Amino acid sequence: MSFFPRKILLAADRSEESRLAVEAAADLSKETGSELHVVYVGLISPWVQSNTLSPTQYRRLRAEAQEVLDEQVRAVESLGGKVTQAHLRMGRADSEIIRLGEELSAELIVIGSRGQHTISRVLLGNNAESIVRHAPCPVLVTRKDR
Rank of each mutant, 00 (worst) to 15 (best):
D145Q: 09
D94M: 06
D145I: 10
E77M: 07
V73H: 01
L123E: 05
A26K: 02
D70R: 15
L140I: 11
F3M: 12
N51W: 14
L124C: 05
A25F: 06
T142K: 05
T32W: 13
S78A: 14
S2N: 09
L140W: 02
N51D: 15
L79V: 11
D145K: 11
G101C: 07
T32Y: 13
A128P: 02
D145G: 04
V110F: 02
T56F: 11
K7Y: 07
D27R: 13
T142R: 08
Q66K: 12
M90S: 08
A75L: 10
E71F: 05
G125R: 08
L88I: 14
K82Y: 04
T118D: 04
I44T: 09
G101F: 02
I44C: 08
L36M: 07
R62F: 04
I97Q: 00
R92D: 14
R121D: 00
L104M: 07
R92E: 12
L69C: 08
L53T: 03
E102D: 12
T32H: 10
D13W: 08
A75W: 02
P138E: 02
S34G: 05
I109F: 09
L10R: 01
V139I: 05
H87M: 05
G42V: 03
A63V: 14
V22I: 15
Y58W: 07
G101A: 08
A12P: 00
G33K: 14
R89L: 10
E31H: 14
S50E: 14
A106W: 01
R133F: 03
A24H: 12
Q57T: 15
A128K: 00
R14F: 00
A93L: 07
I97P: 00
M90Y: 08
V132T: 09
Y58K: 14
S45L: 10
I119Q: 08
D27G: 11
G115Y: 02
R121N: 05
A26W: 03
Q72P: 06
S78E: 15
S45T: 10
L100A: 02
A21R: 05
G91F: 06
V38G: 07
V73I: 15
T118P: 11
R74C: 01
R19C: 03
R99I: 07
V41H: 04
N51I: 14
G42L: 03
N127Q: 06
S54N: 04
S34P: 04
